[in-house]
Amino acid sequence: MTETLKNSVNAPCPHWNPLVQQQVFRRLMNAFAYPGSIETISAPPGKALIGVLACLLDAETTLSDPCRLVSEHDMKLLSAVCADPETASFIVMPGDHDPDFIPRIGTLESPEYGATIILQVDQIGEGDSFGLSGPGIQGSRQVSARGLSHAWLMSRAKWAQEFPLGVDFILVDGKSVLAIPRTSKI
């Protein structure tokens, strides 16, 4: 079975393989449990974004990709329902593109309806750093990402100011992810 997994990782388009999706999800879950920690996603090589989307999305979810970061082919395979960023549960945006919409932030009774925003950045672990603290972080942690517009952090502060309402961020570059859930304080 370990062999099967190895072969799956090295096969073309490994991110559509369920065994690989599980591995990616564990990285992602770790990223959420320990906000600010950089988790490596090796499948598919250099395209962590589609790896993340493939392990979470199916036809029951809504996805907004206003800047077309996901290819049409991958969009079809994801089979998520396309939606506006105002109503989608998952939003994909380039990190250097300022937010020009107001995402779902959930309701007091059902805060899980708050959107998950996935930002494609140039490089995690480089550029201007900012401090994170909150659940999952011992003390505080310095985080940085090149290609992340400051406007996202400003907007996030507004969207996530009334816990439990808010949005959860996933930053991805080519090969790694970093999560900033709504509980993290910047």
């Binding site: 999706q21 599980q22 979470l56 899980e112 708050g114 959860d168 859930p181 709504r182 509980t183």
Partner: peptide, 18 residues
């Protein structure tokens, strides 16, 4: 796999909203 994905999405929200 659909069931797993649905539970995984719920888990990420559960971690985000302790």
């Amino acid at each position: 796999e659909y069931a797993k994905k649905e539970i995984r999405r719920a888990l990420l929200k559960a971690i985000s909203i302790p």
